[in-house]
């Protein structure tokens, strides 16, 4: 028996919004430590890794490890049926071929349940090595989303250059060129507004704007985003989900042909 309950459906809606543009389907691996999903996008350029810890749920029970392959478009249809303040419970029997989403209104007067067929997905799991990154940038997630949106107008690719002075995002194309420089903030009223840079070595890497823009769909999950970079390895874009876990996106760099 698997059962996981969240007080608010909003968080699950936000998580789905953060992955459904990149993935058509995904396998949710459930164990007593929580729920994990790892999947590459269709073109195998990026990797999504979602971790939701069992202790972050209002209730969590997982008697036997189960892997639930879900069509994310179908899951989105079901989650549309939940109000933001509904409690959501995800339930599945051991070896089941369906999963049930149950939504309860705050006053418990409306209870709905939606059963969805599970899929058998051939999933390739990738081992992600522990890495000490040359540069780790933390910045407001809305600022990062804004920069990705703005620079995507100029080119398909964006250059991210990080030094101890700051981080620079650049794009150039037929229209012209764009540069956005962010310096480390010296003092801020709110922690969420801070830009911080931990640098061992300066790094310059090129990435496809459309993937970065897809990652920023996770912005509603967290006020801050963390970018981890080293030369010639994938960028990690991480959004922490308060008290529940995180979503990490890995993006392969573009290299000189």
């Amino acid at each position: 028996m698997f059962e996981a309950r969240l007080i608010s459906a909003t968080i699950l809606k936000k998580i789905l919004d953060a992955i459904k543009d990149l993935l058509n389907e995904g396998t949710f691996d459930c164990s007593d430590s929580g729920i994990q999903l790892q999947a590459m996008d269709n073109s195998h350029v990026s990797l999504v890794s979602l971790t939701l810890r069992s202790d972050g749920f209002d209730k969590f029970r997982c008697d036997r490890n189960i892997s639930m392959g879900m069509n994310l478009g179908s899951m989105a249809k079901i989650l549309k049926c939940a109000n933001n303040d509904d409690t959501v419970t995800i339930k599945a029997q051991d070896n089941a071929d369906t999963v049930t989403f149950m939504f309860e209104s705050p006053n418990h007067e409306k209870v709905s349940d939606y059963e969805m067929k599970l899929m058998n997905l051939d999933q390739e799991h990738l081992g992600i090595p522990e890495t000490d990154y040359s540069c780790v940038v933390r910045m407001p997630s809305m600022e990062f989303a804004r920069i990705c949106r703005d620079l995507a107008q100029f080119s398909e690719s964006m250059l991210i250059c990080c030094t101890k002075e700051g981080v620079k995002f650049s794009a150039s194309g037929d229209v012209g060129s764009a540069n956005v420089k962010l310096a480390q903030t010296s003092s801020v009223d709110k922690e969420e507004e801070a830009v911080s840079i931990e640098m061992q070595e300066p790094v310059t890497l090129t990435f496809a704007c459309r993937y970065l823009n897809a990652f920023t769909k996770a912005s509603p999950l967290s006020g801050q985003v963390q970018l981890s970079m080293s030369a010639d390895v994938p960028l990690v874009v991480e959004y922490r989900i308060q008290d529940l876990g995180h979503i990490r996106y890995y993006l392969a760099p573009k290299i000189e042909d």
Binding site: H44, P234, Y250, A252, K254, I255
Partner: peptide, 14 residues
């Protein structure tokens, strides 16, 4: 020109 690499070329299958 630039070439897009794939994520599988950096992380190995487990």
């Amino acid at each position: 020109s630039e070439k897009q690499t794939t994520i599988g070329s950096y992380f190995s299958k487990v």
